[in-house]
Design a protein around this nucleic acid. Sequence first.
RNA 1: CCUGAGGUAACACAAUCGGCAGUGUACCAUUCUGAUACGAUGGAGGUUGGUGGUUCGAGUCCACCCCUUAGGACCA
Length: 1106
Amino acid sequence: MKYRTYKQLNLPEIDKEILEFWKKGKIFERSVSEKPEDNTFVFYEGPPSANGKPGIHHVMARTVKDLFCRFHSMQGKRVERKGGWDTHGLPIELSVEKELGITKEDIGTKITVYEYNQKCRETVMRYKDLWDDLTVKMGYWVDLDNPYITFENEYIESVWYLLKRLYDKDYLYKGYTIQPYSPAAGTGLSSHELNQPGTYQDVKDTSAVAQFKVVRDAKSEFLYEKVDKGEVFFIAWTTTPWTLPSNMALAVGKKIDYVLVKTYNPYTKLRVNLILAKDLLGKWFKADAAALDFEAYQAEDKLIPYQVIAEFKGNVLEMISYEQLLPYQKPEGEAFKVLIGDFVSTEDGTGIVHIAPSFGADDKRVGDKYGIDALMVMDEFDNPMPLVDKKGKFVEGMGEFSGRYVKNYKDNPDYRNIDVDISIKLKKENKAFNVAKYSHNYPHCWRTDKPILYYPLDSWFIRASKLKERMFELNKTINWKPASTGEGRFGKWLENLQDWNLSRSRFWGIPLPIWRTEDGEHEKCIGSVEELRLAIEEANKVLGLNQEVPKDLHKPYIDEVVLVAANGEAMKRESDLIDVWFDSGSMPYAQWHYPFENEEKFKANFPADFIAEGVDQTRGWFYSLHAIAVMAYDSVAYKNVVSNGLVLDKDGKKMSKRLGNAVDPFDTLAKYGSDATRWYMISNAPPWDNLKFDLNGLDEVRRKFFGTLYNTYSFFALYANIDGFDYKEADIPMEERPEIDRWIISLLNSLIQEVEKDYADYEATNATRKIQNFVDEHLSNWYVRLCRRRFWKGEYTQDKIAAYQTLYQCLVTVAKLMAPVAPFFSERLYKDLNNATQKENHDSVHLTLFPDADNKTIDKILEQRMDYAQRISSLVLSLRKKEKIRVRQPLQKIMLPVLDDAFMNQVDGIKDLVLAEVNVKNLEYIKDTGGLIKKRIKPNFKTLGRRLGKNMKAVAQKIAAFTQEDIAALEKNNSYTLQTNGESFELTLEDFEISSEDIPGWLVANDGNLTVALDTTITDELAAEGMAKELVNRIQNLRKTKDFEVTNKIDVTIQNHEAIQAAVAQFGDFVCNEVLAENLELSESLLGGDSIEIDGIELTIAIEKA
RNA sequence: CCUGAGGUAACACAAUCGGCAGUGUACCAUUCUGAUACGAUGGAGGUUGGUGGUUCGAGUCCACCCCUUAGGACCA
């Protein structure tokens, strides 16, 4: 069977062929099923949402996933890859609403929850086909037929099980947190919604600095001691004066310096004593007022005198009491104390922060720490609520402010600014130190464009903070790529972990499986459908109902289920849905419907060996997986994780539809092929660096790497087909193969070792770069180039067979090494090789095992030797170039200075290769005896620097000034006494780097420590041989233009000319042999034939098939 | 504002423990080829983002700043 040959390289065409082959042969399925079940490599697929179209960055992320799975599959592991779909969440709701032209408020009125959810269910898989198409085309092997889908009942049931498990461990609780809330829209907002463009707007608000009167007692006595007249106040600034009635505390910074200032209130003109941060004194008091006379101050004076009468650190203020500012409602428990808060700064305000736990997240947190609750009143159901209701207006019992909106939510033209009214009241009551307009950036609801409130909302939480030490500890056992993401971004996040807010007041998601009585006294968490069935039966019995387990566990059906408490009261479901991140973090369990099914399957597949996603998932999926595993099973969820960076456009800008710089993945794959795209992405930069995606780079990869490899194969196939090489001969033992074969095999095995290690370390970029370097630099441009003649010349000898075997082995091994990254081309290459030889019993490169490096063949000394050969050749070629002597002109000799015997022995081994490559007859070594070689000396900075310290510079200069005699003496004695700055140092050869630089009188070139001289004399005989080679070249060109077959024999007639007579006379046989000529004749009068030119001489040559 | 990553030739990237700043592409010139979508040779191209510090010696370590990018905070 012949090796398949091609007209040209067409990667997209190969993609199509191979896809068809994989599909027919079920290669993916077989790559899994043929591996032992007890030797697994576990991979988790992070579920994408099929609600949006895939982008080029998905190709990147999936290439990373795919390649390591393929690699481990080739390591003999069973690598199951279950796909999955993320189907819940806000983006889906939003796209549905946009499509239907509705808002959240319309749900339940214009559209039923049933219809809404139905629509979500349809929308969510909208682009599934597109995704599947991309998955297939890019060669991402994942099981698309049995994916897990987060909206399915089985999935939900597993999630419920996990929630119940956490509930039983007492990790679930209901509590208030301060969340962004839009009173105008009547809904809470997620941080995602808050980060929509345009939500933060500059607004002008009335800000107030309020005076909080210090209660005089033992704690505060030290303040009053300094005071001669008037009361002592803390002053605190706020841009939301409507929160002042809810003030419960003040916060100061522990280490911040505060001062007590004696002055007059600018509105009431009363003498007051104010406490504020020292650094902010200048913000509120004019410097030239400090000198003013207190006694002379008149109420109408512009400048108000002030004087600092005490100074102290914030920590002495802790727990001092003050009087409630606006006492409409009395708080329960502790209140009106000074607290220490780490968030307090002296950036703006007064360095004292007004704390209203009802309306600020920081406020709530510091309040909780000190046991100070939010100020609440009871609503008509006796449930606590803050002083502002959900519509954004003050509750009853707020005096003149009762029932008024805190912001103009209703676009009422008569709206009176409540911040202003509160400020006026404070001014009148000697409770305001300053009132001013203040312009700042404040978030607005992206739908109603009204300012949001930070509002306490009832939510269900997971006590994640309780386990943060454990999560931190287990995180250290995870291998992060890159490590900094794990230690830094993720580690820091775990260190400061807050409880997980599970609640979402939405419609399309997994319902929280908790039922409660109206008063919250009794509650029940459901952990399975069976449990729900029993609870329903019980409720039916007690309450006389006729309910069934809903067929769909989503809203609205689940909300209709009423359960019964132990005391016979009815329990209703808590109306919240759970955070979608909990959905995805549950996939290790829920994808198998564990623990209700597949117990064995789950146990064999937990935790994962490997996961990979974008770095943006650090606090998303990476966290939810980790948190759930730690909380529910005290285990990590994954052992290795690669977080890949972004794919940017070629200028480093983010890709977006808006900018129009997004690259279409389908176009790219269709044009450049999947492999070039994948190879480019992986080889260009480590996956965790952001990738500047440049189509020119793709082109380069295609030309440079795939082009070269393709050509190498084509070369092999061309001649192997001619010679009928199909590897039926036994392997020729290594020691019987020529040096160059052993060299490339040695390099190949070194490559196997390194590439395997790189893949195992998740360093695919290094692996691809090494493979590429091997193929371009060594295999194609050295091995094949030097061995060309072995393939096309002469009989089918041992040497020829060795060459075929060697090249074959290189190609088939490269196919395997590159298979994880370039699955299509490697498959084509492997099959084209193996189909012809049937050497291996595998249908696909992806069913083979990763090659084992044969250590016996690795010969580092040989590798170095060949490196010399490459460099010496390069030097000789550069000398030829300089003298404008073309390579076809043979030259007599090369001279090579040798400084030690080891070097000479090395070069001796590759002498013939070099001579053939550069077309020179002899290589002569020049030993350093006659002083023929001029040497160059340099200090060895590494050894000398350590010893000489600051004398290094001076010594380096001295050494640079060494004469040839100095160097010779040093080499002879192996020691040198160096005097500098009165100090003396004994130096040995170790401390220097000596290299040959020149051979005076010869043409010389250098590369590092290599020096080569070339004899450029051209004798008559050399000239004749050169001319013969020119003739060969011209005749070969003619053969090519006349489309002769490589094997055709020819007759040649050349117009006689004195310039070629010597060449034909002496080297006629050589010429005939080279061009496969049976006859070569000189003719005085040649008719027809082609005109050629050699060194300006026009000749006519006629060739015809013999 | 905080945290992480990054900033090296036109572009993409290297540079081990601090020890002579490199490779590839592109460009210019010369040239080669019976595997070539190659190859060879030479050339040009650098204040390693900036400023300071430590050191005999800094792309590398330290400090501050600027820019890109991601994440978080955005409060009084």
